[in-house]
Design a protein around this nucleic acid. Structure first.
Lengths: 188, 188
DNA sequence: CAATTGACATACCGTCGGTATGCGAAATAG
DNA sequence: CTATTTCGCATACCGACGGTATGTCAATTG
């Protein structure tokens, strides 16, 4: 079958690109290196993707999907507990160095902020804002515009994850700080 | 005087680079464009800086200094009011599109997260953490490790600023949300 | 089985960041 | 006031990279 060979090539390119981008960053990895690792040539890459940026976009999609899956899987229990667990799962996921650089460092720079936000909107931020409005409806959070709060919390978790990359010993303290931050917002 | 001509060249390069980086991003601006705008050639640039990254570093330093100045200037009143005013000033400063892309988007990607944090540590994060520990000593904030909280708040403000770039109408709501977030942390 | 498609390889191009070298004016010495 | 040195900068060049045009051969199709 021709289509499955194509898909195998595509997945190999995405996988190798993701590995290399995560390790050394978008700018420091050449296409030749990616194609060599995937066992194809530049022709194959350009047959599958519109260019280096398009390849990165595909990699970022995969990363986003993975994070969303992890967060959804972790969010269980009563509404408030599920919310906190989801946030903690997000922190854990974005602490993973294999995801971090692609998602939080190179993502905005390569795609530009506008497109990066569109990705984020479709996954993390969307779920977070949904969760926040849900908690407000249940009376667990004071009613207020959800969008700004979504950004504040999303940014807090992103930055905390990045900081943890250089300060891994602070993981427990950061988890606690995040929980306390969320609890302090809760209706009492 | 020869030294002042050198300084003029240097400042012109930094100014033009800053303008172009802010408008279109680090990767999309070539050295030829910068040098042309500054009225010199690539030889002059390489005489003053070690390369494109070093030039960006000088630009980022200027941006950091400017933000720190604005924040310090805004932080006045009693300790808690000064703290909130400083945070709001930071949000305002990083909402400025001329600073935003350089500081928050390209900065981490170009310098790598480690070096970017070193810059941030020397200015924003340093002041923020200092302010937080000061507030704890005064009993205005519950005692807790300041470093993780610093990161959470710093990230919250950064992300909020970036979000505001695409949603300027939410400025007031975001200011309120930030104030409420800070107030919710306060000892009562 | 001929014709066609399409997945991929190869060769090539323009541009970019970076380097080596040369020039000319300002600074300094005699 | 001239000779010499210094040094800020221009010019010419290089290798590497992203991207494109073209060629090739196996899988598909009628």
């Amino acid at each position: 079958m021709r289509a499955e060979q194509k898909e195998r090539t595509r997945l190999a390119l995405i996988a190798e690109a993701r590995r290399l981008f995560a390790a050394r960053g978008y700018a420091d990895v050449g296409l030749s290196e990616i194609t060599a690792a995937a066992g194809v040539t530049k022709g194959a890459l350009y047959h599958q993707f519109d260019g280096k940026v398009a390849l990165f976009r595909a990699v970022l999609e995969a990363v986003h999907r993975e994070i969303a899956d992890r967060v959804v899987a972790a969010a269980e229990g009563d509404p408030w507990a599920a919310f906190v667990a989801g946030c903690q799962a997000f922190l854990t996921a974005t602490t993973d160095p294999a995801l971090q650089r692609i998602l939080l460092v190179d993502g905005p720079a390569v795609l530009g902020w506008a497109e990066w936000r569109a990705f984020d909107e479709a996954t993390s931020a969307f779920h977070l804002e949904e969760a926040l409005t849900g908690l407000m409806r249940l009376g667990l959070l004071p009613e207020r515009p959800a969008a700004p709060l979504t950004r504040l919390l999303s940014g807090a978790m992103n930055e905390a994850a990045l900081w943890l990359a250089t300060e891994p010993s602070a993981l427990d303290d950061t988890r606690r700080a995040l929980t306390e931050l969320l609890e302090s917002l809760r209706c009492r």
